[in-house]
Design a protein around this nucleic acid. Structure first.
Lengths: 195, 195, 195, 195
DNA sequence: CATGAATGAGGGTTCATTCAT
DNA sequence: GATGAATGAACCCTCATTCAT
């Protein structure tokens, strides 16, 4: 199959980088995990940077797919957000080490000259902004709320508890966590007279 | 003065690490920024890890000071949380590159064998948990909320928008952002019948 | 046509090697310049060494052709030598980068186990030795002169000024140079009482 | 002594490069020959290029010393040129592999961005040009001769026979060679009516 | 206390060569 | 005949660490 070598590299690289982080992962180790020779990595990618970026891009894409699928379903807004939260948390749970990798590298200096890893998640935030816009138009969300701040906040409400428990490698009462976060997120939509 | 060399190292190191991140900062560069010889770093610290940890500890301490000072003030809970948010955001703004450094390294694999950087922020979360506990006891916060999830969520509501704007190096309408986040946080305290 | 692939390789290789030298020319680059796949190079040649040797041999052959054509013309000796010089210099001028390539590799360690590149020019020196022998027999050249030293000297009188101006990429008063060198060479034939 | 490490590197490097040429000499091999660790090479030089250039510069300097010493002696011009030839040839003989190294690299592409190795020999040719100028003023050399061509030619008359015999590793009748070349060089000074 | 020359393990990258198609 | 994906040995270089001064 045409993609087989590339796929082997992808899965080996995601495993290697997730385990050790970008800097502590040697190309030798990636090659070993991928089951290919080191030269093959360089035959398919210009260098470590480009390989890493490829991994992150494929990963960011699958992350964005989650949000897209949820919000494209026909459902009332509250159900959508509830689904978004539980689906996203489940995704993090199923891809613990990769999610951790993302959180490590989202804030770094530019990896390549012009591309911040953060930009990879541009689509993600765009989709969330759209949905918040809709909520605002429906009167579910106060007009005074700054949408791009809120989308980042919601992302934070979700991810920080998730990454925190992952870093500590603690088992979590999944249902309780989903409920708490759902509550937090949905409350943030309500009323505007809190200040 | 006894502390002068150590201080020179501290300030040089924080500058160097903030600029380039842990891995891309060489001991040579730290020495240059600190204005001391490389050997002096090793005279004062066992190695790069220990030096970095020292920097992060002093930094985490000053971060924790913020939350402590705010919550120790006599004030009603709502005012306290409002102050906490604005003070914390101001701290991030004043220490942009160091805050970025923290966010990069909070989720990493254990830096030394037994110490996760995240543990450095243990005190921070403990203090917040205490305050949330109080709020719960005062009936400001629903009994059903999971406190450790909520404290992480609140941290996320604050930091992700902040780090996002720092990474993108965008100027921000500070007041609007504080208001949006304050609203979000305080709303999360309200009612429990959202689910 | 049978020779077309081989010729494509030859012209691509001579261009590539002349531009970058032996070591800095990759087989990939030769393949690109030749417009064939890398595997094709290995289908036609055992390896890089053999390919390079082939290029040098074809080149050395055309260099030797020059000297042969000149000395095979019926003319008096002085005219012959004058023609030799101007023709040779013109050849260098028309094949600047290839000539430079030759001069770089003439003195190296043996490229293959048993073949020095210098030996490629064996025919060249043999032909010159013959002509000097004739001159000696005609009494044009002192009996005391060592012919193999002289042929090398003459080659040096020609090539060093040529390569020097090529390396410096300087425009040259061609006529003046030919005259100077012709004078130098022909003078070396005269008298024997200088020592 | 302050220079001892640098000297060890110098002598090790000259030995290594002379034996294998620039490209086929690894930094590991230089370190081994020099009796220092590889890191020491990089502590003292930016890279392989700079180290090589240093070696060539020190070498070019000692080559230039020869010509300077000879021509600074009080003697009649003919004696000077005779001494120059024999001294230079002796120098080549005593530094066979280094001389070969020079001849290999004199014609290469620029090693660093702005410095051609050939420029290292600038002083050498300047000194020879001065001496030829003097000869012209004394009437020993025809006014019509192009000096910079002639200095290169003389260098060629000397070096090509020398390098040729070195490459072929042939024993040479030293005296006969000196005589032949001296004759050739001195003859080139005479008369101008050959053309 | 402080220094900086010296070290060497380890990493990213190149590239001549092979071989299944 | 020709191809190009795959290989892995070898190379240049970095940098945390040591230690004699």
């Amino acid at each position: 199959m045409a993609r087989s070598t590339l796929d082997a590299i992808y899965y080996g690289a995601i495993e290697a980088f997730s385990e050790k982080g970008y800097n502590d992962t040697s190309m030798d180790y990636v090659a070993e995990k991928a089951g290919v020779a080191k030269g093959t990595l360089y035959y398919n990618f210009k260098g470590k940077d480009e390989l890493f970026l490829y991994v992150m891009k494929r990963g960011a894409h699958s992350l964005t797919d989650v949000i897209t699928n949820v919000f494209d379903q026909p459902a009332d807004p509250v159900t959508k957000w509830r689904n978004y939260i539980s689906t996203q948390l489940a995704f993090f749970e199923q891809n613990r080490s990769f999610f951790r990798l993302i959180m490590q590298n989202m804030w770094g200096p530019n990896l390549l000259e012009s591309v911040t890893l953060h930009e990879l998640f541009h689509d993600y935030f765009v989709r969330m902004d759209q949905e918040l816009q809709k909520a605002q138009e429906l009167g579910l969300l106060s007009e005074s709320m700054d949408i791009s701040t809120l989308s980042a906040s919601i992302f934070g409400m979700l991810t920080i508890p998730a990454i925190r428990s992952i870093v500590h490698d603690l088992p979590i009462d999944e249902e309780k966590r989903v409920n708490s976060i759902t509550h937090t997120v949905l409350q943030s939509f309500k009323g505007g007279e809190t200040i």
